[in-house]
Design a protein around this nucleic acid. Sequence first.
DNA 1: ATGTCTCACAAAGTGAGA
Length: 254
Amino acid sequence: MRLATWNVNSLNVRLPQMLDWLAANPVDVLVLQETKLTDDKFPAAEIEAAGYQVQWFGQKTYNGVALLSRSAATDIIKNLPGFDDPQARVIAGTVAGVRCIGAYFPNGQAPDSDKFTYKMAWLDALQRFLSAELQTHEKLVLMGDFNIAPTDADVYDPVAWAGQIHCTPQERGHFQAMLEGGLVDAFRLFEQAPKSWSWWDYRNLAFRKNQGLRIDHILVNSALKNQVKSCVIDKLPRKNERPSDHAPVVIELA
DNA sequence: ATGTCTCACAAAGTGAGA
């Protein structure tokens, strides 16, 4: 079973690229972030024509998530239960016995901003949701754009980024708490090339200079850990014309 | 380099968000 996450930065713009990528990488599950579409505009027919079932949860202009799967997803949850949120950031479903949670974590803007306060509250709510989900599902995968670079090894210039958004002790503390709660960073189960990033700023020729961050992640629970065969970042779509600023992350389970 | 991309407004450039 292969699963993937991709922040497409507008599904309206990136739909052809996403369909091309799926044709070349026929994963069993794909979660999307930043679809930036209201639900009535979601391109369900095109996705179904490509052989996928799909659940979606969006809003106007910003955010928006989706869950594509070869077989039907059940027990769908949209956003974090008990956390009243106008922003569409979470979609969860069970596919072939695996609980799949796709999430677009808040960016947070800057550590002294209101958006950071919101990010912290959202992360608290996510931790509560994860605790409950881990109790009720034997196999669980959390994947998405975390907007957290968990360690300095996930940052092209850790000195410049020290204490900056995506790298604050508070954000990293939340990531660590997920690991202590029984999840594993699948990417780090394997030897990886140094300077492996999942996001590069559109500005400053960042991709050409490989100046990026690893902020897109796939975490698995302990029951799945031994089934993880590989976890890779697919940089190819970042080389496309009109690319997303994020690359897909793909995991293979035995 | 405040360096780009995306969306929306009542636009024909500008601001917000990332």
